[in-house]
Design a protein around this nucleic acid. Structure first.
Lengths: 133, 133
DNA sequence: GTATCTGCAAAACATTTGCCCTTTG
DNA sequence: CAAAGGGCAAATGTTTTGCAGATAC
């Protein structure tokens, strides 16, 4: 009997389990470190397949690396330039722009909103360091 | 006499001249192809230096490559997933989010808004191709 | 059984670095 | 001439691919 193509392989499911944690954003390398028995190529193939199925989202950061997150209702991202941490922010200010594009005949599919800056925690740590001098 | 560090070198000026065209978004490779006498490393060093001076902006695309554009008042970007072309869009819907972050004690520095989809031209070409079948 | 999936290692790709030569004031 | 800038080629880091063997239906 011809074998059926699997929607989500065992390894892809492991990746999905990792990413499904709240506010989780991981690079391919971090995912591989968390799954030491899975080969690098398999990690990337699983990520590609899950992204195609829209189960996860790939975010290209300014630094050049990509991070992956579980698909959730559209939101924004705050990326701390000091510690590198990514925070999900509520809201979707791109929706209006997408609608206006649609009215002009375009086919907008998704919006990425990334805000770069310094996060609360890093600002606080900085302040403490300065007062210790 | 000790030599003064140049703000913008001749090669960096060539890069800047290229990018200053309206609605121009180029990858490092495209820039190098347009400046065949300039070495790759020099292109990247010029891009880095110009970005540090805020004369240009580096955009990280989903595909993993970076494109560069002349610094202009904040705007959004539409990226066509079919032809790869990038269009500048007026508007800055991230400003509100940045302000709210500031009120919460963050230090937001800049926002990137990218809308991915299919552009007018590609949709039109597609329609024509279909009617030719 | 046979198509799919896996892991490894090698390749591909964009970007950065080390080194030494060229340019400039 | 001394410091800065440039070009080349090698190194880096991430992602992709080719392939032979393992796996699942």
């Amino acid at each position: 009997m011809p074998r059926m193509k699997q929607a989500v392989t065992r390894q892809a499911q492991q990746v999905l389990n990792l990413l499904s944690a709240e506010n989780c954003h991981m690079t391919a390398e971090e995912i591989q470190n968390a799954l030491p028995d899975v080969g690098r190529a398999t990690i990337y193939r699983a990520l590609f397949s899950l992204e195609r199925q829209r189960q996860i989202r790939r975010l290209a950061l300014e630094s050049g690396v990509a991070v992956y997150e579980f698909s959730r209702p559209q939101h924004m991202h705050f990326i701390c330039e000091n510690c590198g941490r990514i925070e999900d922010l509520p809201g979707n200010p791109g929706a209006e722009a997408m609608q206006s594009l649609e009215e002009r005949g375009y086919l907008p599919q998704r919006a990425d909103i990334m805000i770069y800056g310094i996060c609360l925690k890093c600002l606080k740590n900085n302040k403490e360091e300065q007062s210790n001098v």
